[in-house]
Each structure stands twice: as structure tokens, then as C-alpha cells.
Amino acid sequence: MRTDRASEIIRLLGQTSIPSSENISAFSLNKTDCTQVVVPEEVFFTIAAVGILENLLVLIAVIRNKNLHLPMYFFICSLAVSDMLGSLYKTLENILIILCKMGYLKPRGDFETKMDDVIDSMFILSLLGSIFSLLTIAADRYITIFYALRYHNIMTLKRALIILAAIWTFCAGSGIAIAIFSHETAVVISFTILFPLMLIFILCLYIHMFLLARSHAKKIASLPTSTVHQRTNTKGAITLTIFLGVFLFCWAPFVLHILLMQFCPHNPYCACYMSIFQVNGTLILCNAVIDPMVYAFRSPELRSTFKKMFCCTRSNWK
């Protein structure tokens, strides 16, 4: 995030390649014996490019295959857009860092300040978009499992699009507001508290699912398509679990870094953790790479669509 210590930051960039989001912590590195872990810029750009390409393929597959024009796949597309924004955020940030090191950008120029705001907003938009996309996927799975017969009446395509429009409007407004007021402690706390709130909400859904599973199992078992429904619903719940686990593993270290640089930037122990910031940034990029693999592995329809795309065939797409 942006700080008022930009001149010292640029000076430090001549010694390290710390992304700008961690600049506030750079001043405490000299108070610890921990060596900063540096990830080569080529690694950043390669992982980011792969993540952008994979998620773009997911979007194209859903758009081209009308059989995938369902609420569930639109929610997956929302998560794919969030992952793409995360990859673009790290890519643009690293490009600015390189330009700063080469002397093409000024420490406190108007252009640099505006670009910093744009990059910060993109980061926040990516994180919030991922959180709310996962929440919608969780709610969609819940409705699918416990309101299977009424699912298509409850979660219509129009209603799903309205939900996504509301989510991204809120995320865009929040991203701009948080980027502007990122120096306020209350904003940082509100921003990071979304993590445990999301986890609690999804855990509550899971607990409720398990508590009602037995009673619903008897009702579903009486249906002719019970086996198919049970397999589909179980598979959807497992996919959601994988999404959630990957998201927490990849984003939690970065969010912890933001909290530490806000509350204890000069503490030696905090500084020691913040010395691995670039590793945490790499994990964000890995999230954008892993999610599309989960889509392709868990969804036969998407796998089939990818095969048709690569083989340049259009049969049975409509």
C-alpha cells in the first residue's frame, strides 16, 4: 500500500526488489538478522502470465459453450476474473518497480501516485472479488444440496447476474475507498476482518449441511435420480472445499503481512516475517494458476469444452 516514505522506498529499491505493497515494512528490515527472500522477477512474470492465460481460457470456454450458461459457471467466471486481477496487479506492480529501479519514474510524481492508487485498487478488488465469489459459490452449493427441486426457481440466471453485478459494484466502490484511506487503521482492520468472517460464514453453511444431511438423505433417496443428485452435490461441496483451502493458503500470508506492517512494522519478529513478502506475493499468483486447474479437473463439461476449443471443433456447443 502507498505510504508517505516514497523517497526512502525508492532508495531501498536500489538494493532489493521489494514490491511497493510492502514498502512500509522495509524500514524495519535493518533491525533483524533475517535475510530477505527475493523471488526473481522472471518467476513473477511467468506465473502471472500463466494465471492470466488459464483464467482467460475459462472465461472463453463459458462464453462459447451455451451449455455452461448456468449460475454456477457464472460464479466460477467471477472467481476467474478476480484471479486475473490478482495476476495483473502483481504484474503491473513489478513493472513499476523495475521502472523505478531504472530511473524512469519519480518517487513522488503525479503519474506514479495515480498508478499506485490504481494498483492498490486492483489488489483490493481482486481480494474482495475472490471473497464474495467464494461466498456466492458456497451459497449456490447450499441451495443445490438442500433445495434441489426448487433450485432453478430460486437461482435463476437473471438473479445470478444481478447478484454478480451488485457484488462487483460493491467491490469496485470498496476498492477505491480503501485505496484512498488505506492509511487509516480502522480501514485496514475492516479490510482484513473479511477473512475470518468469510471463513465463519462458510463453516456455518457446512455445519448446517452436515446437520441436515441425514434428514434430507431419506427424502432424496426416494427420488428416481437420487444417485445422480447425491454424486453431483457431493462433488460440488468437495470442489468448494478445494477452492476455499487454496484461497486461504495463498492469500492469508499476504493479509497477515498487511496487518503486521500496520501494527508492528519495527518489531524484529514482524520484520523477520515481512522479509518473505515476495514469497507471499508469489502465492497470490499461484492461486490464479491453481483455480482453473481445479475447474478443469472437477468439471467434465469444462474439460470437454477445452478439448473442443483446442481441437477447433464446434459440434454440440449450442
Rank of each mutant, 00 (worst) to 15 (best):
188 V>W: 05
240 L>T: 11
168 W>P: 03
166 A>W: 08
182 S>I: 08
207 I>Q: 12
197 L>R: 11
167 I>F: 02
233 N>M: 04
189 I>Y: 05
195 F>V: 04
175 G>T: 04
217 A>V: 03
180 I>C: 10
200 I>S: 11
207 I>S: 09
175 G>N: 05
183 H>I: 03
198 M>P: 00
164 L>R: 10
211 L>C: 02
167 I>P: 01
164 L>P: 10
181 F>Y: 14
198 M>W: 04
177 A>Y: 09
193 I>F: 08
228 V>K: 13
186 A>S: 13
208 H>Y: 11
178 I>S: 13
225 T>W: 03
170 F>T: 15
197 L>Q: 10
171 C>V: 14
200 I>G: 02
197 L>N: 10
211 L>E: 06
190 S>G: 14
211 L>G: 01
228 V>Y: 14
187 V>I: 14
184 E>V: 06
200 I>V: 11
170 F>E: 14
202 I>M: 11
200 I>M: 09
208 H>A: 15
197 L>I: 14
228 V>M: 12
172 A>F: 13
199 L>A: 08
197 L>D: 07
212 L>G: 04
237 A>R: 03
232 T>Q: 08
227 T>Q: 12
229 H>I: 05
237 A>I: 13
174 S>A: 15
168 W>L: 10
216 H>I: 00
165 A>H: 04
234 T>S: 04
196 P>M: 09
200 I>D: 08
227 T>N: 06
219 K>V: 08
198 M>S: 06
195 F>L: 06
169 T>H: 03
226 S>G: 13
192 T>V: 14
216 H>G: 09
209 M>E: 04
212 L>D: 04
166 A>T: 15
214 R>G: 15
188 V>Y: 01
199 L>P: 00
216 H>T: 00
170 F>I: 15
207 I>N: 08
183 H>R: 15
239 T>N: 00
178 I>P: 09
171 C>Q: 07
199 L>V: 12
215 S>I: 06
167 I>H: 02
164 L>M: 14
168 W>Y: 12
164 L>A: 12
225 T>A: 06
178 I>E: 06
175 G>A: 05
229 H>W: 01
194 L>K: 06
179 A>C: 06
203 L>R: 14
224 P>S: 02
205 L>F: 14
233 N>K: 03
209 M>V: 01
220 I>P: 01
212 L>Q: 13
186 A>E: 11
223 L>H: 01
225 T>V: 11
174 S>T: 10
191 F>S: 03
178 I>L: 14
173 G>D: 05
202 I>G: 07
180 I>H: 15
197 L>K: 10
199 L>I: 09
215 S>M: 05
218 K>W: 09
227 T>E: 11
166 A>Y: 12
212 L>T: 07
168 W>M: 06
206 Y>T: 13
240 L>N: 13
220 I>G: 02
213 A>G: 05
165 A>N: 09
223 L>I: 05
181 F>E: 10
